[in-house]
Structures are given as structure tokens and as C-alpha cells.
Design a binder for these strands. Sequence first.
DNA 1: CAGTGGTCTAGACCACTGC
DNA 2: CAGTGGTCTAGACCACTGG
Lengths: 251, 251
Amino acid sequence: MGTTQLDTVQEPKYWHLKTVLSDALDSEFAVGEILPNERDLAARFGVARATLRQALEQLELEGRLQRRRGVGTTVAPPRMGVPVADRSGHSWPGAPGDAWQPVDAVAVDGGAVPAAVAEALGTGAGDSLHVVRRTRVDHGQPVAAELLYVPAGSVPGLVADATIGPVARARAVLHELQRLALDGEERAVELGSARAEDAKQLDRLPGAPVLVVTTRYVTGGRTTAVAVSTYRADTCRLTFGDHDTLDVLPG
Amino acid sequence: MGTTQLDTVQEPKYWHLKTVLSDALDSEFAVGEILPNERDLAARFGVARATLRQALEQLELEGRLQRRRGVGTTVAPPRMGVPVADRSGHSWPGAPGDAWQPVDAVAVDGGAVPAAVAEALGTGAGDSLHVVRRTRVDHGQPVAAELLYVPAGSVPGLVADATIGPVARARAVLHELQRLALDGEERAVELGSARAEDAKQLDRLPGAPVLVVTTRYVTGGRTTAVAVSTYRADTCRLTFGDHDTLDVLPG
DNA sequence: CAGTGGTCTAGACCACTGC
DNA sequence: CAGTGGTCTAGACCACTGG
């Protein structure tokens, strides 16, 4: 008869391991509980530590685990729903009630902004822009960092007061935006990896997966401002709409 | 004087490598061009292959590279903008002009659907649901796979004809949906990893990063259907709004 | 068939956390 | 300080693609 085994598919070890661990998380561990360390887990499953880590990486990507250097691996709570836009969705950043906190603002030259932002705004080298940094904290932990690009021409009423602090400057730019009409917002979501600067704000390591939301604010057919917001992909579920009730992940 | 070097941060090798490669991609390679193989690249940069691969993984995650087993690593084109919802956004799946192709449909028991879907729909074991599989192809390549869950109670007019084929059954379910009123849609976007089944449809390996879009279709305050769509995270930029012009990634 | 990327190993050292 | 996860190495073998 020869070999009766049907090894047709040849599942990778780390993939099978991930499944086993995932089931174990569901049945044998509580949220926040700390797992055995990687060396012990690898030994227990009879695999190399690198293979075990490949499985853990997957589970962390799916938001099931949280790993912290020097501490350990813990079971993550379900992802939090983070409202990005409600259907009405017509309000400037900094409008009353938005979830963001201004950090600071600096004036930069048009040549120093990402190419795609410059293209959207129609700016180039020689133009002056305000860059407002903002941060977002939900349920007590930082979930997103943002860079808001506002061409100086979009906020002509802004007084150039060099004596005020960086936070006040950020507030001033946001305040000026509210005076403008807003015809609409246009968003795009894509996967990215955290830059060193963002990573620090988000309390993650550089390169951590993030959801990058790019928002174009449109007035009279022209783009008045562009926001690039990076959300922690491991802990956030971005919601579009009014409600906030639905968590699904079939992986 | 001792050590004058300011190694304050200690950048990981793979991170630095990623930066170098990213710059090289911008300046020295054209879209579609094939890179040297991993062993050569690793040798050229004086690192182990595993380290080189860690850098390549990052770049693939950011949509800069495309790797295919047995073929090689190529420079990826910019991510394509994939419209997920326009602002009007009030139409059932299967409405004329939508980008999806029905694959098949099966009837399942309420106990066999993901817990989160069951919760949203208010179904449980014993209830009957239609599950419609759909696929989405943009610019000539598959970008997304979808499972659409429709409680049998939502489409009472559906004739139970066992003689028709699976594709026709999918079309029939979609056709019945159009007869219902639709008050609104509610979406959530999160990061996931491709299940084996999805991976095959998307022409990727299992575990590949995907953007999971969960859509609740609401009629009269009740959820009439739930769609779980998984988009290739490496090649797609999900757009919300009417236009489709803006690509940004600051990583 | 040769060449590619994908998986896996066993071991080492480093950076960070908390006691 | 001991213990954790993060990085890195050198090598092996496998699965897949294309000529």
C-alpha cells in the first residue's frame, strides 16, 4: 500500500502552531494574563524559538497578543473601535468634540513635505506650510499620531506671533481652520509601518504595523489641508459610521 | 577623549538596511524590475539572509516590493486606490455597477458563522443563513475576497430551488436584497491575516496581511446583512469618498 | 533541471524591564 | 541583578517556478 498518509498540503509548522495557540488563548487564558516565555513555549512545542516567534508575530498582528520587551507576552483585549468618520463627516480637525490633542506646530518649506501630500495640496518648494502634530488617546492609551499639513495660504488670518509657544501655535492654526467653509472630506486607508517618531508616540517599536489614514479636506474643489494619521494596527479597529458596535476578524 | 561616536540609538541592522534599500528602489530601479536574489543581496550588504529578509518583509508590507516563490523579488507599482464606499454609500451588494463578482452561495446554520457576525445579525444556532462568496478584481488582478452573510429571514422571497447551480444561487440572494429598503451602512477596517481559503483567491500565501472591512447593512434599525471583505494589504489603498486621487505613505 | 523565495534550526548576544 | 523579548548568524532543507 505504501504511504497511506495524505500530507497533501504540508502546513508550515508556524501556521499550525498559530492555530493551536489561538485556540489555547480562547479557552485557557484570560485577557491580560501573561504567557510562558518564548524559550519555554518553544521547548514545550518542540520547535526552535524563531519558529515560535513567527507564530506569535502573526497573533500579535491579529491583535490577539501584546509583547513587551523585558516584561513578557500577554493576552490582548479585543480591539477597540476607533471612530474615524461619522456619516455626516463634515468638520475640520480641531472642531469642538474631536478626539485629538494638539502637540505643536512648526512652519516648514513646501519642499520638506512628502511628495504625495505636496501633490494633493498643489504646493512645492518655496511655499510655506504649517505642520500641526496631534495625538489621539482613547480608553487611556495612545492610539494614533497625526501630521496635519496646512498651506499658509489656507489660513491667511493667522497672525505670525513668534513669542507664543508651540502648543499655542498649533491651537491657532486649528482655530483659523474653523473659519473656512468645508465642502467635504476624502479618506484613504492603507497599511504602513511606524516611523521612529510615530513609534515613540504610540509606545511601539519602529516598524510596527500601522493603519495610515490620509484625509483630504476640500473647499471649493481645492484641497485646503491634508492630514496623515497613523493608528496602531494591533489595537485599533477603525470605524466609519455613527455606531461603534461590531467586532469581526475571521483570521 | 574616549569614544567620540554617538551610537545613542543603536539602529537595528534590518531597519537601516530597509532605509538603504528603499532609497535604492526610488533611485535605481523601475517598477516591475527584478532585484538580485536574497542570497546575493545578503552577501552584498554583509548580513545574514534572515536579516536581509526582515528588511524585505517590511518593504513588502509597505507595498514597495512583491515577492514570488520560484520567481524572484520585483519592484511593486504604487498601491491602487480601491473605492470601498462613496459618500452616498447607500446601496446593497450586487447593485448594478458594483465591482464584485458572485462566486457561489451556500446555506449554513447560525452556529457555523463567526461569533461577531452572529452577534451583529442577532442569529444563533438553529437559524439559517445564506453565505454568498464574492470576489473583486481591479486593474486585472484579484484584490479582495468577501463573505456576505444574509439571514434567511432577510430574504423571505427567495425560492428554494435546489436544481440551480451555486453561482445562480448567489445571484438570486443578491437579487432579493435589492428589493429591501436600505437605511445605511456601517463599516469597520482592521488588520488581519489571510485565511488559507482567502489566500488562494488573492494569490498570496496564507497569513499574508489583509485589510478586513466589515460592513453592516442596516434596515429599520436592524442589521439585515453583514459583509466581511478581505483586501490585499500590500497592493490596496482603500478609499472612502468620491474621488480616487491621493497616495501617501510617510513610512 | 537550476534557481528562487519560504521554512526551520541551534545558538549567541543585546536592550529593556522590574525587583 | 535575573528574566524577558528583540536582533543576528550560518547553515540546511523544502516548495515552487520556469525553461
